[in-house]
Amino acid sequence: MRPFQYLRPKTVGEAVTMAADHPDAQYIAGGTNLIDLMKRGITSPSTLIDINHLPLKKIEHRYDRTRIGALALNSDVAQHKLVTRRQPLLAEALLAGASGQIRNMATVGGNLLQRTRCSYFYDVAMPCNKRNPGSGCSAEGGINRTHAIFFNANEKPSCIAVHASDMCVALTALDTDVVIAGPNGERTLPFKDFHRLSTQQPELDTYLAPGELVTAIEVQDNAFTEHHHYLKVRDRASYAFALVAVAAALQMDGGKIWEARVALGGVAHKPWRYWAVELMLRGNAPSEKLFREVAEHEMRSAKAGEYNAYKINLTANAMVAALKTAAGIS
């Protein structure tokens, strides 16, 4: 690990100024990902700005939104009454992530910014476009069992890694905004526009500008509190990243689906919202047949490598399973 300078701001304004003054700096909160990255030599900031003392832990309800401070711990959010009552899908997804110990350290803002878990990204001896732009993607043509099957339709991907978060899959399915502080004040980004697909700049995971700081997320109230399910398919029962994850949320009435949300994890460079499926579900009575039809519909656009072809079937199956549970049919 490269030696670094440690700074501890007291206010958001101070933090943002520090970041502007130290272009090589990184914010640190729970450190559950950043410390690994520093130990493995993937990130070597000369300055760490410890934001743990900023007043960004609050979870509150304002107007029609649940606002969660960026420093709220994953474990606190998952069991907060506002979240379990108004955004149970989010709570479910949080509890599917990492382990109890990590959730006790990890923050909401950090969860948004965690890097991919692609093993080539983590090994500095291997080429990786995300870690070392232009060096090549080792996963393409390598061991790509956990890698992406959905890509930006218009561009050849320079990186086939997937986003690792569970929480972000749920937030993608819901209507979420990200509140960001920067040198020029506060701005808000819709969650769907926060993460990037793999482009020619795979080193960038988000549309956050240098020095900007996530201060909160805001999740819109919804009618999905009864019919929702977060299904995470993984190699072991806990503490493993998703092979495929499905966040399914339905608004049902009179035996019909009136509104549907489906987002996927483990299949793309960012959590993948399934817009077409949502349209196809609307106005229909839930059935395994319907879910199978809509699940397989968009899989036609999936592209697999040597080791992850199974994900095409698995994604469709997981979607059927998640929708069935959400709809309450067996």
């Binding site: 093993s119 080539y120 983590y122 090994d123 001896a125 291997m126 390598g142 190699d235 072991r236 503490y239």
Partner: peptide, 23 residues
């Protein structure tokens, strides 16, 4: 192992899975 490099790609506990309590 990625045989192009002759190097393991599962060289940490995120990549090399052993059972956890829940298993």
């Amino acid at each position: 192992m990625d045989h192009r490099f002759g190097r393991y790609v599962t060289s940490d506990f995120a990549g090399y899975h052993i059972p956890v309590h829940a298993d």
